[in-house]
């Protein structure tokens, strides 16, 4: 990751599959991507799983308000706002 890498937070509330596909795409330029699932538990389709595997490979941080979201670190909705202040861009989906 270069010195000019940006920190980008993607907030997922709906359209999970597209939000995750976009998150993965955002890693292409070497930026540090974190995903915050603030909505329903992630629906695991093949496409979603492939994108989550890719996000892991690209060392993205995955957070979710749902304990059941495997592979995501559990975070409370109250913890998210302060965390968002660390990011250059906040992209809500």
């Amino acid at each position: 990751m270069g010195d000019d890498a940006k920190k980008i937070a993607v907030i997922v509330t709906d359209r999970q599959s597209e939000a995750l596909r976009m998150s993965l795409g955002l890693t292409i330029e070497g930026d540090a991507i974190s995903v915050f699932n603030c909505g329903a538990p992630i629906e695991r389709t093949d496409e979603v799983n492939t994108n989550i595997d890719g996000l892991d490979m690209m060392e993205c941080q995955l957070f979710s308000v749902n304990e059941v979201d495997e592979g995501f670190a559990t975070i409370t909705m109250q913890e998210i706002p302060a965390k968002l202040l660390e990011y250059d861009h906040i992209v809500s989906y």
Binding site: R21, L24, G25, T27, I28, T50, G54, M57, M58
Partner: peptide, 13 residues
């Protein structure tokens, strides 16, 4: 067999 953005990512990686 892979769709956007996987081919780009894997190639660069």
């Amino acid at each position: 067999g892979y769709v956007c953005p996987h081919p780009q990512l894997y190639t660069l990686k």
